[in-house]
Write a protein that binds this DNA or RNA. Structure first.
Lengths: 356, 356
DNA sequence: GATTTTCTGATTTACGTACATCAGATTTTC
DNA sequence: GAAAATCTGATGTACGTAAATCAGAAAATC
């Protein structure tokens, strides 16, 4: 049987009340006594029973999720996963609220972060924009001892506790590696389509892609990056123009969102030579394009896993408990037509008619 | 606040004791009263607080994991993950014992399953061998109302509650798809290296691989399947012979274990034309070979995820609670040199010097 | 050495559920 | 309609922890 507070009291030769004071860092214990108790805890290997403690405290974990608003299937899918978590909140003792802010807008994000801090929740999860102001706002949360997890896009140099997302440099490298090998002997330049260089995940994917393409597949020139702002209409226009300007394009790497526009442009240019297309995030649109052969590979991060992981980590941080590292590593899914998972129930799917 | 047993009692107009009898399906409640209570539960949306219930019961979950013994890195890695879970058992209220049986030996597996049943645990996880006797033994467990989860290799037609492993048909299809595209214009036959056709996972991978190769890449003949019994020495000899007999081999798909032998054979045959190699399971050996360019792709299933998922599912089944389906889907990892995860601490790694 | 301040112990209630006991009520059986 | 069988209620204890109260002990202060 695992030791309890009573065992600590007996082992340390003090009362239950004193043990409680030490365990919950309440005042009113002399240093010597405190040390006696701490040694006893160490000695008998006591670990607090979090379930019992939460029961006694009637604890709930108020969490705030800050996500970009707008017409982005992946982000809406992410939001759907957060709402699914809200549906489990009574069982999981969470109290999650969702805040959406305009995409690629650091100012709005800072305001949301500061507002979140004012609510003093047990933790905050945020899809970060890479900017010094945002770093400062996150650091203010950390200073207020509120655990912060970055979701999808990380915030380097900040005091965030954890990043729940994929290794985006590796994602870019993988895309390049697959692109290069899928192209085989074929020649022709490769186009890169991004959303915005403001977010770290896009920058990192580009960096990884560039590195491997130039190192290993130098035969393919890289065309200038197309910034589509994750906007399907803009993307469609820009890709159409690029295909028209360079009909010899052999591959396209779409590292952001707005893939609905990409797919539309590809459909229109179907007559030309086959283009190897690698895109990110499995959405209804990319899934269909993969099945139709318009897209060759989809690199994906599982939004459900990211949300559940973020919640687990925030809970652990709030309780000052260790996490199982390997469990919280978000893996890069590589989907071909052949290993597409079966479609989830419609309740799990992003709303229809949305961009990519 | 979520409703409690007291709320049920009040809503149904009965006493706490009666609610308890209904909830824990104890005798001594008239059908009408039972229904009244059940309706009240339904109406107010009561969900049992499993944490509190477990506390009250001082519940522990005795689980038995049945794994193949022998010199197989993946299986030893799996066992290491089970032992890691044993290390967490006091926190997770589990009491896990590990039983190993000789690989590919249905009789021994049946004996182990029957022995497990005699211990009447709260659940059994087993790496299954596909045989009618094993199906019957699993069905006996199910008849004794002991939840069963198959690990890694499934057992079709049995009454197992859940399968914690990858979709092996999709894995084979994916391997074929990557193989075909990596080979590009190159010609030459493709060899398939399996462990044993006795286990379902190997059969399914082969099936998926065959299907896609013949459908989409018919230009590459498939050589007869090499059965290496997951034995590195045997594998090395057989692969060496195959390479000697057909020097024009363009690709090798290794869908089982014993990859140490494959790698040794590849190293010896290095002088010949480059061969596209796709193997299963990330072990120290395959990882090194991937980095050295001897292997092009490693398809992997995360043993840690599988073990943790099996435990979660067994717990849920034992408690009669629903699982989050998406969370328990084991994904097929596709590793190229470029997206290899950082090496885990040595405590997470399989023992050295073992075959994979 | 008396007084104040600071610690410590003992005890109680609570969280939500499980489980046992026993008296009393309601049905069933003949 | 009485005896037997079955059902129901009331109550208490337990699980491991949190949190509060209050009396008494020990230490610090002058």
């Amino acid at each position: 049987m695992r030791p309890t507070v009573h065992d600590i009291a007996a082992a340390a030769g003090v009362s239950l009340a004193t043990v409680d004071r030490v365990l919950n860092q309440r005042a009113g214990v002399r240093i010597v006594t405190r040390e006696k108790v701490e040694q006893a805890i160490e000695r008998i290997g006591y670990v607090r029973d979090v379930a019992a403690a939460n029961l006694a405290k009637s604890r709930v974990y108020p969490f705030i999720f800050i996500l970009p608003s707008g017409d982005n299937s992946f982000m809406r899918g992410l939001e759907a996963q957060v709402r699914a978590a809200i549906g489990r909140s009574s069982v999981e003792r969470t109290d999650i609220s969702v805040v959406t802010v305009p995409a690629f807008n650091a100012e709005a994000l800072v305001a949301a972060l500061d507002e979140a801090r004012a609510a003093s929740p047990a933790g905050v999860a945020v899809v970060a924009i890479d900017s010094p102001d945002v770093v400062a706002a996150v650091d203010r949360l950390a200073a207020a001892r509120i655990p912060v997890v970055t979701l999808v896009s990380d915030l380097a140099g900040s005091a965030r506790d954890h990043f729940a997302g994929v290794d985006n440099i590796a994602a870019g490298r993988t895309a390049a590696s697959l692109m290069g090998r899928f192209l085989g002997g074929r020649s022709g330049p490769v186009a890169v389509l991004a959303g915005s260089m403001l977010v770290r995940d896009h920058r990192e994917r580009l960096e990884g892609f560039r590195t491997v393409m130039t190192e290993n597949f130098g035969g393919h020139a890289l065309l200038p990056v197309i910034e589509g702002q994750d906007d399907p209409a803009l993307v469609e226009r820009l890709v159409g123009e690029a295909l028209a300007a360079s009909p010899e394009i052999a591959g396209i790497y779409s590292l952001g969102a707005g893939n609905r526009g990409l797919i539309a442009a590809l459909k229109r240019g179907k007559n030309a030579a086959p283009v190897c297309v690698i895109a990110h995030e499995l959405t209804p649109h990319t899934r269909a394009a993969l099945n139709d052969g318009l897209i060759d590979v989809v690199l994906n991060q599982d939004a459900g896993h990211e949300v559940r992981s973020a919640i687990r980590v925030l809970k652990a941080k709030a309780d000052g408990v260790a996490v199982i590292g390997a469990q919280e590593r978000i893996r890069l899914d590589i989907f071909l037509k052949d290993n597409l998972p079966f479609e989830q129930g419609s309740n799990q799917e992003p709303a229809q008619g949305k961009a990519d």
